[in-house]
Amino acid sequence: MTATDDLFAAEPAARTGTLVGYGRVSTRDQILDRQTRALEEAGCIRVFTDKLSGKNTDRPELSACLDYLRPGDTLVVLALDRLSRSLQDLITIVAELRRREIGFRSLHEALDTTTPGGRLIFHVFAALAEFIRELIVEGTNEGLAAARARGQRLGRPPALTPEQVEHARHLLTNPTATVTSIAKLLGVSRSTLYKHVPELRSTGARELTT
Results as ranks from 00 to 15, higher is better:
residue 135 L to K: 10
residue 160 L to C: 05
residue 198 P to R: 03
residue 110 A to C: 12
residue 1 M to L: 08
residue 133 R to V: 05
residue 129 A to F: 01
residue 182 I to F: 06
residue 23 G to Q: 11
residue 116 P to Q: 12
residue 125 F to C: 05
residue 76 V to N: 01
residue 112 D to R: 11
residue 180 T to F: 11
residue 187 G to P: 06
residue 16 T to V: 02
residue 128 L to E: 01
residue 116 P to G: 04
residue 102 I to Q: 06
residue 44 C to M: 04
residue 160 L to D: 10
residue 166 E to R: 10
residue 46 R to P: 00
residue 62 L to R: 10
residue 181 S to G: 07
residue 185 L to I: 02
residue 3 A to M: 01
residue 128 L to H: 09
residue 177 A to R: 12
residue 38 A to D: 07
residue 11 E to D: 14
residue 120 L to C: 05
residue 81 D to F: 04
residue 208 L to S: 02
residue 38 A to Y: 00
residue 142 E to H: 05
residue 70 R to V: 07
residue 172 L to Y: 15
residue 42 A to P: 15
residue 157 P to G: 08
residue 210 T to M: 01
residue 179 V to T: 11
residue 201 R to C: 04
residue 117 G to A: 03
residue 197 V to M: 06
residue 119 R to S: 11
residue 166 E to K: 13
residue 147 A to I: 05
residue 81 D to S: 12
residue 100 R to W: 01
residue 89 D to G: 14
residue 131 F to H: 08
residue 169 R to V: 12
residue 29 D to N: 09
residue 167 H to F: 13
residue 172 L to R: 14
residue 199 E to G: 07
residue 36 T to H: 10
residue 157 P to Q: 04
residue 115 T to V: 09
residue 121 I to D: 01
residue 72 G to P: 14
residue 127 A to L: 12
residue 170 H to I: 10
residue 13 A to W: 00
residue 46 R to D: 11
residue 43 G to I: 10
residue 6 D to Q: 09
residue 156 R to C: 10
residue 115 T to W: 02
residue 170 H to A: 15
residue 159 A to L: 10
residue 133 R to L: 13
residue 26 S to N: 04
residue 3 A to R: 02
residue 94 V to I: 14
residue 163 E to Y: 02
residue 210 T to A: 06
residue 43 G to P: 06
residue 73 D to P: 10
residue 126 A to R: 03
residue 197 V to K: 08
residue 139 G to V: 04
residue 182 I to C: 09
residue 61 E to N: 04
residue 4 T to S: 08
residue 45 I to E: 12
residue 36 T to V: 15
residue 110 A to P: 04
residue 12 P to S: 05
residue 36 T to Q: 13
residue 154 L to E: 00
residue 108 H to S: 11
residue 180 T to C: 15
residue 154 L to K: 05
residue 22 Y to W: 06
residue 72 G to F: 12
residue 10 A to I: 07
residue 162 P to Q: 08
residue 37 R to D: 04
residue 188 V to N: 03
residue 130 E to R: 12
residue 77 V to D: 03
residue 15 R to Y: 05
residue 64 A to N: 09
residue 194 Y to R: 06
residue 164 Q to F: 03
residue 155 G to I: 06
residue 7 L to C: 03
residue 71 P to W: 02
residue 81 D to L: 01
residue 17 G to Y: 05
residue 169 R to T: 00
residue 109 E to F: 02
residue 110 A to S: 14
residue 202 S to L: 09
residue 123 H to Q: 13
residue 203 T to D: 11
residue 172 L to F: 14
residue 87 L to A: 12
residue 146 A to M: 07
residue 20 V to R: 01
residue 26 S to R: 11
residue 31 I to P: 02
residue 59 R to T: 15
residue 23 G to A: 15
residue 208 L to R: 03
residue 156 R to L: 12
residue 66 L to D: 00
residue 119 R to G: 08
residue 53 S to V: 07
residue 166 E to S: 04
residue 8 F to E: 10
residue 160 L to H: 02
residue 202 S to M: 05
residue 200 L to D: 01
residue 132 I to T: 14
residue 68 Y to H: 09
residue 167 H to W: 12
residue 128 L to R: 00
residue 57 T to L: 15
residue 138 E to Q: 06
residue 208 L to P: 15
residue 173 T to K: 08
residue 89 D to V: 14
residue 157 P to R: 12
residue 191 S to I: 13
residue 118 G to I: 03
residue 70 R to S: 10
residue 49 T to M: 11
residue 47 V to D: 03
residue 101 E to H: 13
residue 34 R to P: 02
residue 154 L to Q: 11
residue 46 R to C: 09
residue 15 R to D: 02
residue 166 E to I: 07
residue 166 E to W: 00
residue 206 R to C: 08
